[in-house]
Amino acid sequence: MTTIRKTLNGLWSLIVGLKVTGKEFCKPWLTVHYPRQEVNNLNTYRGHIELVSLSDDPGKPKCVVCRRCEEICPSDCIRIEMHTPEESHLPDRPLMLISGVPLAGSVAKDPLCEGDKLLRVLDGFYLNYNMCSLCGLCVQNCPVSSLTFSQEVYLAGQKRSDFEFDLLQRLQEDAYKPIKSYH
């Protein structure tokens, strides 16, 4: 008896299956016909990371060169080059460990400060996008929100070096180009 009931149930499930696919058959397409149509949510696309510029200067990143992103990236794909500018008009002086006791053989200029903040200058922000897992840790952890995901959907290349970017250079180049549109 149970066998027959199971069989009937099974047969019924076959009809249910046909009903499901039959309904799907009649519904409109879900796929997008790419060269003729495009999806309208490209702004949700997570491309490679990119630097965010200051609101008053499109050529300068918000980055304060804290190097947190470089530190936190699990794939080790960010490399930052920076220097601390010096007070060029002051004479060189030896470094002091305690005031009044100079460190032998160490002579340098004083670092440049802005208020009580030590100035750091970003020279290069290198991203190796080949390794990036788009985990977003760098974007989340930047203290000044200087990183974001780009919406570069049509990125393509043939060599590894096509995916190694200097983000600082990109930012500066983009700043003087007309606004890019991906839509």
């Binding site: 799907e24 519904k27 409109p28 879900l30 796929t31 016909h33």
Partner: peptide, 13 residues
């Protein structure tokens, strides 16, 4: 085409 429509895509186009 049937395969396409059942999977909600256009099939050969």
């Amino acid at each position: 085409k049937v395969a396409g429509f059942i999977q909600r895509r256009p099939g050969p186009y």
